[in-house]
Design a protein around this nucleic acid. Sequence first.
DNA 1: ATTATCTATAGATCTATAGATAATGC
DNA 2: ATTATCTATAGATCTATAGATAATGC
Lengths: 224, 224
Amino acid sequence: MGTSSGGRRVGRPRVVQRPDSGLEPRAELLAAAAELFTTHGYAATTTRAVAERAGMRQASMYHYVSGKEELLAELLESTVTPSLAYARELLADDATPAAERLRALCRADVELLCAGPHNLGALYLLPEVRAERFAAFRAVRAELKDAYRQLIAASVSASVSATASAATAGAAGGASAKGELELRTDLVFGLIEGVILVHRSEPERPAREFASATADAALRIVGV
Amino acid sequence: MGTSSGGRRVGRPRVVQRPDSGLEPRAELLAAAAELFTTHGYAATTTRAVAERAGMRQASMYHYVSGKEELLAELLESTVTPSLAYARELLADDATPAAERLRALCRADVELLCAGPHNLGALYLLPEVRAERFAAFRAVRAELKDAYRQLIAASVSASVSATASAATAGAAGGASAKGELELRTDLVFGLIEGVILVHRSEPERPAREFASATADAALRIVGV
DNA sequence: ATTATCTATAGATCTATAGATAATGC
DNA sequence: ATTATCTATAGATCTATAGATAATGC
């Protein structure tokens, strides 16, 4: 295990020595890529910049990853996987009211992405993500969105059957019930995403509070 | 005037002739840049790609613009300027209730950006926009956000004084009144931005309806 | 012997300029 | 003469590979 600090390392020494970050070289590369991709963009970030920030020369990076794409793929998945795992737990928990579970998912999602050192949420929007290479990530994300959809549907139907006030549901006739659900899902998903982006401008606000306020806003949008 | 179609044009003919688009060369370049920047990203778009899509050779582009940056700057300003103009009108109109004006601004903003052929809203998020070169754009955008802030403040105070139900205002003690306003503004602004991005996935939904639904959602977030 | 790193570089770009060319205008 | 375009290209990258090197391990 102890490859990190301590004993001398195998292999030719790095030309520029730095205070041991405690991270494995691959993790150092990922951290460097996260910072550079979010601040300068993916296409504008060179392999040299990533490697050098991770403390090694450009060519040495290829000992650990196949190139920039692999770094992006891994970063993308690392942002969405924890949210999805939590979403699955929530979907399975049929003891808690749906609205409460929806609230919990919104909070967790915003907090996870706002609390990290970089704005990894912004990576979702890179045009490069549409490439075939990142299909796996897009699938995971679609599954997360579907979890939102299910929780919203359950929240709405619980609210309607409880209060019988169909007025809250807006123009939900019944014919366009599916369209209504799709619309609410897009509004909530848009809020979550947009709010994460806006947060970057005001990073001094505690992520915890902000996530909680966003979750409240999401429930108000859904109308429960 | 009639430089567009009709009579023969001055100068060496283009090597690849195309059905006259009716646009001036500079406008053709802007349209090409809009498409490429939004689909492939700014850094990943080459001057060659822009020029060729506009029907001219790479070098000819420099006859009209100084480079990619100028194209981006112009596209950015063209997306935010109409919204800001409308926001100023609304701020001046003290005959209409604030909540109604806020609703109108949200609608217009979403509709303007969703109705266009490309997702110009996504350009806001390019990391390159943080560069000094685009300070003018960022200033315009900050002014637009301030218009939101003012309309939200006016909506809330009208609502509170009318119904005296301070409960709607959430945890608005009074000490953190400014923080509350800032929070609501970020939530609404985040919703507007996020929703524009989400819309791209489902472009078959009419922009008009979607904008209207978003405006309703914004008012529910604000709590009026 | 194995490993992690290095230096060097070929090949493929991409930008922006220089200078030529093929139209119209007068 | 003026204009819009073209071709050609210098200079500056950037990526990914080849092969050398300087450690540790046995």
